Amino acid sequence: MINISERINLLDRHQVEKVKEFLGQFNLSYENDIDYTLVIREEGEIIATCSKAKNIFKAFAINENHRGEGITGTLITNLIDRMFEEGIYHSFIFTKPENAHIFSSLNFKLLYETKEAVIMENGIQDINSYIDKIIKRYHIDLDSERVALVMNCNPFTNGHLYLIEEAAKEGKEVIVFVVEEDKSDFPFNNRIDLVKRGTSHLDNVKVLPGGEYIISSATFPTYFLKKEDDKLNIYTKIDGGIFGKYFCSKMNIKSRYLGEEPYCNVTRMYNETLKEELKKFNINIKIIPRKVYDKEPISASRVRKLIKEGNMEKVKEIVPYTTFEFLLSKEGREIGERLKEINSPN
């Protein structure tokens, strides 16, 4: 007998292990950010499961003997209901291309597709309406060509500033998208404020939040893990493809600037894959050599290391005054104290 969907107690290690064992049959993992899991059983054994992490569906699997029985609809509908209870009305799912039709029948819209995976969305918002709102809110002139950068800025350094200034030399409007995902030592509100203040002297620069569609848990769930594997390649294609297909085409973006990566293999792979994906949309990639200070490229990780060491005089040499001023503030000092115990990405 097949029972209705059942919520797993995530604090019960035994229950979670059973879900992990089931997913293992499909070479799927149960990720740490999952906050809600449903299973369907037959005679006590799991035959299907699906989870969510905030507004992202994850760890979806159905025993092949029970496919075509409407189980997908049951799981997804119940998880959407749960999201509604949490005030979430927009969601994403990654799946294999051959499964896209299943989720299309459940009102998911295709965002982007590669040979290995597709990303789909569902809810009261879609990417086109989202970008239209950005265009209106930030007074984007669609008749003018522009260039773009995507940055995390954890925190904003002279290296970031140099890259933006190089882009600004083109004379076109420069859009700086600041990664909105809060997985960094410096919270998003601080990071975007530092970029705005640090570039206030550049009349042709606009600083915008990255939102859910640019390097987020939705489009790039492993970005902050700095792990070199096949997933990095797949997610870079998806993240870059979404940027090219939607943001560049709708906002008349013709170039994207990247900082050269002399040391980190993961970032270098990201740059190369991004370059290939954006070529499909005739977007020019410009890779700029890193700004160097004291024979070493300036990076946010270098700044954080110096903060941990208490070497604020050296920090002062490689960040804009506006960043240094923030670091000396009460809020900045509190972040500095936390840095001694936390490691995070650039």
Rank of each mutant, 00 (worst) to 15 (best):
D12H: 10
S249P: 11
K305G: 07
G310T: 14
D193C: 00
D239G: 13
I164N: 02
N55H: 13
C153K: 02
A61N: 05
N32K: 15
L161F: 08
L75A: 11
I307T: 11
V147H: 05
V266D: 13
E180L: 10
N265S: 03
R302I: 10
R67Y: 13
G336S: 03
C264Y: 07
E86C: 09
K275C: 03
I102L: 07
K109C: 01
L202W: 05
G310V: 07
R146Q: 13
N282Q: 04
F57T: 15
P297R: 14
Y223R: 08
L161Q: 12
L23E: 01
L306T: 14
Y321C: 07
L274F: 02
N282D: 06
G171R: 00
T219S: 12
N233Y: 03
F188W: 12
L278Q: 05
F324H: 12
F224C: 13
I131L: 06
L11R: 14
N158M: 08
I288T: 06
M120Q: 03
N204G: 14
I80Y: 12
N233W: 05
L142M: 05
N9C: 12
K314P: 12
I215P: 00
P221E: 11
L149M: 14
E277Q: 15
I285R: 04
R290D: 06
K231N: 08
R302L: 13
N233V: 03
M83C: 00
G171V: 10
R290F: 01
T72G: 02
K280V: 00
R197L: 13
